[in-house]
Amino acid sequence: MNWTLQKDIFISFFRSSMLGYGGGPSTIPLVYKEVVDTYKWMTDEEFSDLLAISNTLPGPILTKMAGYIGYRVGGVIGMLSALISSVLPTVLIMIFLIGFLIKFRDSSIVQGMTSAIMPVVGVLLLTLTWSFVKKSKKDLGWLYAIMLIVVGTILYIMGVHPAILIAALILFAIFKPNQKAGESS
């Protein structure tokens, strides 16, 4: 067993979980940074596919991603390492800090911390979204990419569940024309 790899899996998901204040969506850019940029365990396209599939399944997104990536990179031990490290920060915080946060939840300092983190999470998600848009433009062409963004946004605003949107986009990918928009044959 490669202990260095197991340590890297543990540290990458522990770090993502520990710094992912605000829940699952805030951890996605952190996992991306670890998995794609730092350790190069996946490509952009593989991560995008994993993110799409993870969004269609029930449960917390970080644990789904951790389980899959850990298994893919380090087998069963890697999966267990990734799952434990992604859940451990939450358990530790619940045990040690929940009493403190409940006691001071009305404090302007605690409310200010929460308010200050929200824009940072928004920027991280926007950055990740932009990288996906650029990738879509490269793979589909601007016409299809913009069309899918607009249609997806409208359907989401109308209340269509994200899993249905993802399923529809998978069908689109299966049946879309093979050439990029704007290319001549």
Rank of each mutant, 00 (worst) to 15 (best):
residue 52 A to H: 03
residue 85 S to T: 02
residue 71 Y to Q: 12
residue 112 G to R: 07
residue 99 G to M: 07
residue 128 L to Q: 07
residue 127 T to P: 00
residue 131 S to F: 07
residue 24 G to L: 13
residue 124 L to G: 04
residue 60 P to M: 05
residue 22 G to N: 06
residue 77 I to L: 15
residue 131 S to D: 14
residue 28 I to C: 04
residue 72 R to H: 11
residue 133 V to N: 10
residue 74 G to E: 02
residue 66 A to F: 00
residue 55 N to H: 14
residue 108 S to V: 14
residue 79 M to E: 05
residue 42 M to G: 00
residue 28 I to Q: 00
residue 46 E to F: 06
residue 34 E to H: 05
residue 70 G to S: 02
residue 112 G to K: 10
residue 48 S to Q: 09
residue 36 V to C: 05
residue 74 G to R: 04
residue 30 L to W: 06
residue 87 V to F: 15
residue 97 L to T: 03
residue 56 T to N: 00
residue 113 M to D: 04
residue 106 D to C: 00
residue 111 Q to F: 12
residue 79 M to T: 09
residue 78 G to H: 01
residue 114 T to R: 09
residue 81 S to G: 01
residue 84 I to V: 08
residue 82 A to Y: 03
residue 118 M to D: 14
residue 133 V to Y: 14
residue 45 E to A: 13
residue 57 L to R: 02
residue 54 S to C: 07
residue 105 R to C: 13
residue 111 Q to E: 15
residue 69 I to K: 04
residue 121 V to Y: 07
residue 28 I to P: 11
residue 99 G to W: 03
residue 49 D to F: 09
residue 29 P to I: 09
residue 34 E to R: 03
residue 75 G to H: 11
residue 33 K to P: 06
residue 118 M to Y: 11
residue 71 Y to N: 14
residue 124 L to N: 05
residue 41 W to I: 09
residue 103 K to H: 14
residue 113 M to T: 11
residue 126 L to I: 04
